[in-house]
Structure formats: C-alpha cells, structure tokens
Amino acid sequence: MLNLIMRRIVTTLVTLFLISVVAFIIIQLPPGDYVDAWAGKKTQGGTIITQAELNNMRVRLGLDKPLYQQYFKWIGDLMKGNLGFSFEYHRPVAEVIGERLSMTLLIAFSTLAFTYILAIALGVYSAVKQYSIGDNIATVLGYIGLATPGFLFALILMYLGQKWFGMSVGGLFSFKFQGAPWSWAKFRDLLGHLWVPVVVLGMAGTAFQLRTMRATLLDELNKMYVTSARSGGIPEFNLLMRYPVRMALNPIVATLGWELSKIISGAPIIGLVLSLPTLGPLYITALLDQDIYLSGALILIYCILVIIGTFISDMLLMILDPRMRMKERS
C-alpha cells in the first residue's frame, strides 16, 4: 500500500509537470498578451496609450522575454511555493485564489457526495423493485437529468426560486452574511444556498450513476453466488448489501475520478450563471484577460483535483475488491 502511494506521488508529479507545460502553451495561444487585452479595454474607455507605455509595461511584467524564459520563471517560482502575481488584481495569485478555493472544494466535494449517495440509494431501489412505480419515476427523472444542460437547469431554478419563494438562489450567502465572520447563522445560511449549485452540478452525474448502478445490480442479483449465499439463510437486507450491492459498486467507484473532473469542468459556467464565489468565474475572466499566472495556477489546481479524485477512486476500489489488491501486489 505504501509502495503504491509512493509510486502514485511520483507519477502525479510527472503528470503535473507535463500539464504545466501544456497549460502554459495553451494560455499563450490566443493572439496578443495581457498588455494587449489591457490596452484594448482602456482605449475603449477613451484613454490614449502610447506604444512606449505598452513596451514599458511588458518589460515590467516580464512579458518581453521569450516564452521558455517566462515558463521557467513561473515554474521556478512554483517550486518555491510562489504562484506568481495576478496582473488584473494587482495581488499575489495565492491571495486571489485562497478566498475562493475553500468554497470551490466545498461545492465540488458536496456535489460528489450528493451524487453518490443519491445514485447508489436510488439505483439499489430501482434494481430491487424493477418496473415498480418508484423505479419508473426514477428512470424518467434520470433521463431528464441526463438530457438537461446544467446552465439551463440553473437558470430555471433561479427563475422559479425568485418567482415562487421570492428568494435569490444565486451566490452562496445572503447579502447580510457576505463578508461577515463565521457563525452558526452564517453556516445555516450557507447550507440554504449550497443545495442549488450542488443539485445543478450533480444532476447529470447522479442520473448517469443511477443508471449504471441499476443495470449492474440487476445483473448481479441473478448471479449464482447470490442464490448460494441466500441458501445459507442470510437475512435479505444483509444479503443484498454484502453480496450483489458491494459487487455492483465497482463500476461506480471506478468512475469517481472521472465524475469529479466532470463536476469541476462544469463548475465555471454554472458558477458564472449562479454568481458563486468560486474559482470557476475567476478562471473564465482570467483566461479572457490573458492573466497568465492566475489562469495557469487555476489549471494546475483543477488538474490536481482530478488527480486526487482518481487516486481516491483507485484506493476505494482496492478496499472494495480483493482482486485489485492482489493485482497490485504482484
């Protein structure tokens, strides 16, 4: 186990290095740089900027140097734990991200928990009570969930929330708690808002995993080992959970990393629509402004999250299935 973790850490570091190179190249791909984007905005406002001013700015920000030098400066700073400086916010990237990182993690992992708890519970119910009314309802809801784009669902929820309950469902906090210190009331206010992005982000994944769970479990329920275990007199509920359900968890757990990456990549658009104080909206504007150090750091954070998700899923699989442990040992 320890051996495996060490190996995973090494491969993770290699992956991260490769991602950092690719990310840096992609960020630079759009024509122009941060200075051009900045000048464009300023001149639209009527300000006149000379070429000399622009050149000065490039030198100051280090944008005049060749690409590889910029990369090595960035990666060198990263090694020292310095994420660089955001041009747009005139603050260190770490500071800009810090505020929003915890909320992003909260939403991502709450969504993951929501997805899996609901999908497993409903999937088991659907399979055991195949073709019952409950199963049919779950099936219909599942298809709707799969077919509805997240941002559209977010807009609908916002509209309905406003119209029926007179409340704004955007954001994560009510106006009066924004910037307020943490308290029990603020926490409850957060929970009151949190469910909206969690439901929106988790909907498609829940529907997908529910279908997977149902289909796999239906297969497992008819397997010989289930009848064999039943012939030993094990009570039905224990039997269901210990034998077929645990077996059917495999494909669901195996896609956990994948599911987390879908949640993360869906988050920016949803975050924008619901005006969430998360990394998502920040990421989009950073890319538009060509704020290279900020967007680079964000891409790396997203990648780390996906890698962590895959790692968790591999670990869970090894706990669940002894065959995986054996394979790893040999």
Binding site: K223, M224, Y225, S228, S231, R246, M247, D321
Partner: peptide
C-alpha cells in the same frame, strides 16, 4: 432458519457460487 441450518445446498458452478469479494 431452514436454509443452511436444516437443509443446505451445493451448486453446479463452484466457480461462481462464492462471492469473490
């Protein structure tokens, strides 16, 4: 109470009558 206690059963496929987990 009868299953496994008073009456028990052996199946055809020894390969699949135990759970691999």
């Amino acid at each position: 109470k009868i299953r496994g206690g008073l009456v028990s059963m052996i199946f055809q496929e020894p390969m699949s009558s135990f759970s691999p987990l």
